[in-house]
Design a protein around this nucleic acid. Structure first.
Lengths: 228, 228
DNA sequence: CGTCAGGGAATTGCATGCAATCGCTGTGCC
DNA sequence: GGCACAGCGATTGCATGCAATTCCCTGACG
């Protein structure tokens, strides 16, 4: 393992959290991998103290599991818990869509539609990378449109924990067009201020994403069963 | 400030987290109060290292705010954010009620009804303390009946952060009977497996609790306005 | 041959010490 | 009289060292 330069923007601990979280979300560190303090300290050229604090934070985020006197490991997410997170995400998306339909300002609605319409081009081009960026932007707008800071936090948390299981969503053929059409249904309902329709559309949308990701996960795991 | 004996069941850090969190939730430590590491270390007769780790955890829980090189203070919750938390709680309760109606096992349904029916006596007696315990039990059963571990976590988090603002709910005259009747509507719907009715009943119930607590908070603050 | 007890290495948990940063106060200048 | 800057005290941030716990390996006994 090569020694890494730590980008110290802010405190050392924050930088460590970002670095390790990134390694986990990007699957460079796989679930179950042990994280011993000395190695991490050596690797990032810091002492064990900030490493420990970073591990505490990562544990609070749910990205790692820490047991007293037993060290830390990348969180093992059971199939059951993974399903629970996707289900929770579906519910949160539905709530945000409903509240967005009720509460978005005129400016927010206008921008949502603009971003969404602009993305139609990406579908035709089949630009997966760019569409993925738009997809994140689109959902963030729905989360923020709900005008509820706490729900925004719950969403952010759940999303970050789902991070390791979200890749390759748009690799499935035809997924881009389907996603855009589902977004379109949400946008239409939100613009009309139709809360019930927005909620229903959001629920249908995320449900499909969940299924796709879930299948991917099962494939990648090659049938192994894990527990929390 | 008197030195406290720390009940070390588990690790020192966990005990510290529990002790400090309890002080915050029980309002012995008021929002905005500074938490300097040396004082806490002295007070609980430990070194600054475990205190720091405890503060990191409390910060992750949202109970305190920590700024680099500036120390920690008990979280200042703005009225807006407080409202957001109550609204989020309403949504979570609604989800749990709906899922409980769909998913509770026969045993869970039976126990829910038994606990609920037994509490009728407490209403007649006006036993606020005991009713409060039943209330927590009742809601926990709904949260667990949803059979979704992640949503359970989101609920636990939100509840703990709402802790400081939840006291004295049942001091309002007639609140016990009203609460029980609202519970009754939820129980009836859940037992029937009527998801929509359960969700609606839960939404109505928590909404009222929120209002009651919110009023209490405003009174206690004597009109002072805070920010996150 | 399997099981259990004991000892040692490795790792975590906590204490302590030093360096760095922040905020406050006092002084000088405009 | 007010504002800016420098120095100082206090507090946080990080490094290091020691104590405590766990885990694993070895060996003896059933």
């Amino acid at each position: 393992m090569v020694t890494k330069e730590l980008i110290r923007s802010g405190t050392t601990v924050d930088a460590l959290v970002r670095a390790i979280a990134d390694d986990i979300v990007s699957a460079r560190l796989q679930p179950g991998a042990r994280l011993d303090e000395s190695s991490l300290a050596l690797r990032y050229a810091v002492s064990r103290t900030p490493v420990r604090e970073a591990l505490v934070q990562l544990s609070a985020m749910g990205l790692i599991d820490r047991r007293p006197n037993r060290g830390a490991m990348v969180a093992q997410v059971s199939d059951e818990y993974l399903h629970a997170m996707f289900e929770a995400m579906t519910e949160l998306e539905a709530i945000c869509a409903r509240l967005s339909a009720q509460r978005m300002t005129t400016a927010e609605r206008r921008e949502l539609e603009a971003v969404h319409q602009a993305a139609m081009r990406l579908v035709h081009l089949g630009a997966e990378e760019e569409y993925s960026a738009y997809n994140i932007d689109f959902h963030n707008r729905l989360y923020e449109g709900a005008h509820n800071a706490h729900i925004l936090e719950l969403v952010a948390q759940t999303r970050s924990r789902l991070g390791p299981f979200r890749r390759a969503q748009f690799r499935i053929p035809g997924r881009l067009a389907k996603s855009w059409q589902e977004h379109d249904a949400i946008v239409t309902a939100v613009l009309r201020g139709d809360a019930a329709a927005a909620e229903a559309a959001a629920r249908a949308h995320v449900g499909i994403v969940s299924d796709a990701s879930s299948e991917f996960v099962h494939g990648a795991r090659e049938g192994s069963r894990n527990q929390v």
